[in-house]
Amino acid sequence: MNILLATIRRDLLQHVRRPADIVNPLVFFLIVISLFPLGIGPSAGTFNEIAAGVIWVAVLLATLLSIDVMFKSDYEDGALEQMVLSKQPLILVVLGKLIAQWLVSGLLMTLMSPLFALMFFVSSDGILAIAMALLLGTPTMVLLGSIGAALTLGLKNGGVLIAILVLPLYIPVLILGTAMVDAAVGGSSYTGHMLWLGALLLVTIGLAPIATQASIRISLSQ
């Protein structure tokens, strides 16, 4: 368990010292969301209807961008080889990296989301629902994305490839997340949606790190 904390600490340290990798996806997130009103027109009527979808799609894309670099530097400088040839279980190291990754991408976007919800004139119930849905949904996306990131290590055009591999897997989260916000805005209970998102997260936590670590081993074998 020690190695889990050490890995989280190590990755956070690097993110703090090299902030571009985490700041850029967040800026991307911000710009994408701000572009939608420009494309639709400034009349506020339709905004709160599309808010959930827009925010979710932006989060999806920003997560993909940040996930792309997740293993890349460790792959390029050989740190990944050392992780595989370690006395520690690789899965704990991978889990540590994933947690660190989520803290600087998913969690930050969740914290930023109320701001955007306000820009889209979402009601306060809706704002809470968006934040809750992102809180439960973003870890699932990071976990699933890490499989794609691990499989495309060392490939040219890995970024586009990750999108093709991973985006279809994000569909359930997207559907549940937006439906949850719709339910909240419509004034009905969204506990069921939250439970489903939570269940999805639990299943993904159980399975995705196994697939990711296996994929890392496969990708290193080149």
């Binding site: 499989l151 495309t152 490839l161 897997l169 697939a211």
Partner: peptide, 26 residues
Amino acid sequence: ALRSAMSGKASAGRATAMLVLVGVMN
């Protein structure tokens, strides 16, 4: 897409198999 991006690599088969398994679970 993954298969063609990895063509020529010895691990291409295992990577594709892994992806198909992830897909079939999803």
